[in-house]
Design a protein around this nucleic acid. Structure first.
Lengths: 220, 220
DNA sequence: TAGATTGTTAATCGATTAACAATC
DNA sequence: TAGATTGTTAATCGATTAACAATC
């Protein structure tokens, strides 16, 4: 095994922790998801060629990504699905549940509360906040909407470290600041705004309008 | 002006049309959004340094991205906001409205129907489909849910070319096939599955669980 | 003219891929 | 052993950045 020295200037992605790029980590999570599916289907052993075909990548990329963390396969044979799942879960710490604080109890926030894709990664939104007095105290998807003014108190008490921002662009930065000052170190941001944070805070942006609009350029 | 010959093997992104990478197009859309905001704020002229600061990129990247399409600034001065908006709108064809067909009238689909961020890019979801007989005919966000069996008929008649997939992973590929056979050439896919399509179909994936889970690796 | 800022060439950097040795 | 497939080194490719000439 060899690790790359791979410090990136964060134009696109969070800065690296141990020299492994965010793209690799994202793909490892995708591998893990597919391996779990294969495991349920009763597949015991799989080659890099097969899994790469499933996921639309090259076999080499799969093997290269794994090689950042060790050797997990058997030459001439392939990978044992169950043991590779265990290995990836350990690398990605998917064994323990990640509890998340969401700010912005609008339509999108509500949809995320119902989103079924989180559970297979042991992700759970455990607290929901809003600033609108109309909403505070009401329920959304069975959860009470808290006053965002209590964000720090509640999330600190629960030890939450991850947040989701589902507020308009105009208030995204202030929500971000609140999160950071409350000890949140990872943020999934749905607001169309660039969040300014320190380098020890990791932000992933989901910009649905830009993704959708960018398609049209290539369609013609 | 010079263009790059820049054929990518689509591991990550749609294949290029005219040698401009999807990353550049995405950023141009982001520039356009920020320029519109600046315009509303009354800003007439802006330098690459200022806009880059707003968006967390380098001034060179902004200028380089623009240089794929021509010269839009004035040396020693900067860029006139209103004329740069016009230029970008023309490049990105944001002047005409893009009407979209959405399949999957669940929570996420409903949230997208209400999402306010689409309008500033002239994106509008004009038809909603589902396969669940319980849902067909009912309304979601004021729109009638159509039977997915009528997808081809309805979208052809309306000339829709862009689709959003909000169904579970297990049915994503069949919905994708239906879209492609109905003349859709651009797809925004929220299902956690790799869609297999021809190279003339452009797919953008939004994988919220992977984005969120990937954060935790760097948080430690 | 001096100062500012663009547009572009060349250098750097990092990610992907090709080639292949290792080994089951 | 022969065939298969991994793990890894070296080559390639493309994107970002540094440097700077052009020019307002």
């Amino acid at each position: 095994m060899k690790k790359r020295t791979n410090i990136r200037s964060e134009s696109r992605k969070p800065v690296d922790k141990s020299g492994v790029s965010p793209d690799v980590i994202r793909r490892l999570n995708i591998y893990l998801r597919d391996l779990k599916r294969l495991h349920l289907n009763g597949t015991d052993v799989i080659s890099s060629a097969e899994i790469a075909k499933n996921l639309g990548i090259t076999p080499v990329q799969f093997r290269k990504d794994l090689s950042c963390f060790g050797e997990f396969g058997t030459r001439g044979v392939g990978y044992q699905v169950s043991s590779l799942i265990s290995s990836l879960q350990e690398i990605l710490s998917t064994d323990s549940e990640t509890r998340i604080a969401l700010v912005g109890a609008g339509k999108l926030g509500g949809a995320l509360l119902e989103y079924s894709g989180f559970s297979e990664f042991s992700l759970r939104i455990s607290e929901v906040f809003d600033m609108d007095p109309e909403k505070i105290g009401k329920k959304i998807s069975g959860r009470v909407i808290r006053n965002v003014k209590c964000f720090s108190e509640i999330t600190s008490a629960e030890g939450l470290k991850t947040g989701i921002i589902c507020v308009p662009a105009s208030s995204a930065q202030s929500v971000c600041n609140l999160m950071v000052s409350s000890g949140i170190t990872g943020i999934l941001n749905f607001a169309p705004a660039k969040l300014k944070t320190g380098k020890d805070i990791f932000v992933a942006n989901v910009d649905m309008a830009v993704e959708l609009k960018s398609l049209s350029y290539f369609q013609k």
